[in-house]
Design a protein around this nucleic acid. Structure first.
Lengths: 231, 231
DNA sequence: TCAGTAAGGGTCGCGTCGACCACAAGGGGG
DNA sequence: CCCCCTTGTGGTCGACGCGACCCTTACTGA
């Protein structure tokens, strides 16, 4: 029953941000990394993040540090996991609350190569500072699982999109091709998108209908992953 | 680009522990609460927990504080969520990493009414200290979701059990009845249990076969929720 | 005018799962 | 001792989801 008091701990927030960028002619998942300018791991690439502020909620800290280090404003943010191994930082005890975020492609291109930030394809993101390799692997694993049962991919596109574009997003995330007809039926039946009256013209083929994402209620806090408490 | 240094934060670990106890003649989910003996919320009921120790991993801190406050040694522990609202504690900034745990019924009975601990049916656990009401609701929500796709319920039973007992557990967690035959097929097909040669005798009816849980590999770290990284 | 390609709709078959039925196997009350 | 009750265990059937595959539609560019 010995209870020591609280020990000195620094709480950091880092974010794994996914977006879609063209690479070798195909859309591929990328994430932004920032080069560290101080020890530990000076010069290494790391996930964007920073210390939480006095009187600042965790999710707000995630958005703020993201804006400060990369200038990005994500369209979707979700808490992922808290990493707290005692030896994960050589300069004292640090507990990192990791958030996962999605950024629309136009927003991502806006801040392409500034701010000491580099966009890296997910499969090239290794050798990072701290335990960030593990963090990225877990975030990718969770994102892939989530596109299977939740309509999160719409946050990687702009306001209006064709179902072909949405299918491209799913294919880039999952790393495999999907049947266009089956994909269409699944997505439309899920109610996550609604058809508009407009069609995308200017393409070389039959003009596809434009769709819009259906916002599924407010979503913050621990229940953000689904509809909320069952009871 | 203003970056302040780390602010003074206390990191606590709390655990939502579920177990099955008889209540009104039926098995129902219970969780242990401890009465607080200091401010803030002196006298109120709260989840067991405590401060993380110097050089102590988060999951170890969860198990240690659990043992110190309740004497329980859970058979399953999983990180749930990190609560960090700036105003969640009136006495300074506290970030709470919440773990969710399952305890086998015999182990739970062993420490029934000692240590200033009270077992409470999940639906009676409200009016708790801090934001623990929200924490309990979210943990229950996640547990219910998880029994649907993962075989976690075996951690609430002893080593050997009948499929009828396992079905009772699922029914208590989900709060609804399940078809015995369909349940049997689903569980057996999942490979999560293996049949033994023994049968449970002494009952009033046909003696049911005893089963044993199949341990699905080592499971620690962020990948504990599933089989591991996809790639 | 025609070829080429993507949009979008239809059908079929398989696997999963819940509802429901049938039989097995033990104890207790007549 | 027999019947019945209860629970364990297995079988069948139909609804549903989803992937594989084919077809038509509609537009562009040669």
């Amino acid at each position: 029953m010995v209870q020591g008091g609280p020990v000195a701990v620094s709480v950091a927030v880092s974010t794994v941000i996914f977006t879609l960028l063209e690479h070798d002619g195909a859309l591929r998942l990328h994430l932004p990394l920032v080069r560290r300018t101080r020890d530990p791991f000076d010069g290494a690439w790391a996930l964007p993040g920073g210390w939480i502020g006095e009187g600042e909620d965790l999710s707000l800290a995630a958005r703020r540090t993201l804006a400060e280090t990369t200038g990005l404003r994500p369209s979707y943010v979700e808490q992922l996991y808290t990493f707290g191994r005692a030896d994960r930082s050589p300069t004292g005890r640090v507990v990192s609350v990791i958030y996962s975020a999605l950024v629309r492609s136009p927003e991502a291109a806006r801040v392409a190569e500034v701010h000491n930030v580099r966009w890296v394809p997910v499969d090239k993101a290794c050798g990072l500072a701290f335990d960030h390799d593990d963090v990225v692997a877990y975030a990718l694993f969770r994102l892939r699982a989530k596109v299977g049962y939740a309509q999160v991919a719409v946050h990687l596109l702009g306001e209006c999109f064709t179902l072909g574009q949405l299918r491209e997003v799913h294919e880039a995330v999952l790393g495999r091709e999907l049947d266009p007809a089956n994909f269409r039926r699944r997505v439309v039946a899920s109610g996550a998108v609604e058809a508009t009256d407009e069609h995308l013209t200017g393409g070389r083929h039959r003009p596809p209908r434009l769709y819009r994402a259906v916002v599924p209620e407010g979503a913050a806090g621990p229940f953000e992953t689904t509809e909320g408490p069952a009871a």
